[in-house]
C-alpha cells in the first residue's frame, strides 16, 4: 500500500485537522510533542503529514509532491488552479466581505473606486462579476488601515466576528463568499491511488462533526 502525503495548513486548521485524525484513530503524538519537525510519519497508518503555509499547501498539492492537502477556501480562491476540491471539512468558518467606513456610501458618485485587499484575485473577480471597473491595491498587513488612511474606498477581506472592523469604524456591506477548510487532492494521485485516497476520505468524512 502506498504511503499518502498530506499537507496541513499550519496553525488553527492544523489543530482542527489533527483532532479529526485522532478521532480516526491515528497516532499523532509526535506532532503534539512540541517538535519543530516539518514532516511526520504516522506510525499506525500509511500517511505522512507535512506542515506548510496555506498557499504552499496548494503549490505542493498542484505539483503532486503531496497527494492531499487541508487549506482554507480563501487561499483556494486566491491561489487555486488545478486539483480536486473534494470535501468541505466544515471548520475554520468565516467569510469574504466587502467593507467600508460606516459613514461612507460606497455606490454613490461616478468615480472609479479603489479597493484595498490581501486577496487581489478574489476582489478582481468579484467586481468583474458585478460588471464594475475598480482599482485594486494589494496590502500585506491590516487591510482596515487603508480606508482610514484614505488610500482606498473599501476593502475586501476575511470577516470572522467583525470586531476589528467595528473598533476601527468599518462595517461589512456585502458578503462575497463563505469560507471553510477544504480537503484537496492532486489530480494524478487521485487516478493512481484511488483506493487508498477514497479509503482515507471515507474515514475522514465519517469522523467530521456535522
Amino acid at each position: 500500500m502506498s504511503v499518502l502525503k498530506i499537507a496541513l495548513t499550519k496553525g488553527r486548521l492544523e489543530k482542527k485537522t489533527l483532532a479529526v485524525l485522532k478521532k480516526m484513530g491515528l497516532d499523532c503524538s509526535e506532532l503534539e510533542s512540541g517538535s519543530r519537525k516539518l514532516i511526520y510519519k504516522i506510525p499506525n497508518y500509511p500517511l505522512e503529514i507535512v506542515l506548510a503555509k496555506a498557499a504552499d499547501v496548494i503549490t505542493y498539492v498542484e505539483h503532486g509532491v503531496c497527494d492531499l492537502g487541508v487549506v482554507g477556501k480563501d487561499t483556494i480562491m486566491e491561489n487555486g488552479n488545478s486539483f480536486y476540491e473534494m470535501l468541505d471539512l466544515g471548520f475554520g468558518k468565516c467569510r469574504f466581505a466587502l467593507a467600508t467606513k460606516v459613514e461612507d456610501d460606497f455606490y454613490s458618485g461616478c468615480k472609479t473606486r479603489r479597493i484595498a485587499t490581501k486577496y487581489p484575485k478574489v476582489a478582481r473577480e468579484y467586481f468583474a462579476k458585478k460588471g464594475m471597473d475598480v482599482d485594486i491595491i494589494k496590502i500585506e498587513g491590516s487591510v482596515e488601515l487603508a480606508p482610514l488612511l484614505g488610500i482606498a474606498d473599501a476593502i475586501v477581506d476575511i470577516v470572522e466576528t467583525g470586531t476589528t472592523m467595528k473598533e476601527n469604524g468599518l462595517h461589512p456591506i456585502e458578503d462575497i463568499h463563505p469560507i471553510s477548510a477544504r480537503l484537496i487532492v492532486n489530480i494524478a494521485s487521485m487516478k493512481l491511488y484511488k483506493e487508498e485516497i477514497f479509503d482515507f476520505l471515507k474515514k475522514l468524512e465519517d469522523n467530521l462533526e456535522d
Binding site: 492532486n186 494524478a188 494521485s189
Partner: peptide
Amino acid sequence: IRGYMEGVGTP
C-alpha cells in the same frame, strides 16, 4: 484521453 505516470503530479 488523459494519461498519468507514477512520480509526476500532472497529466
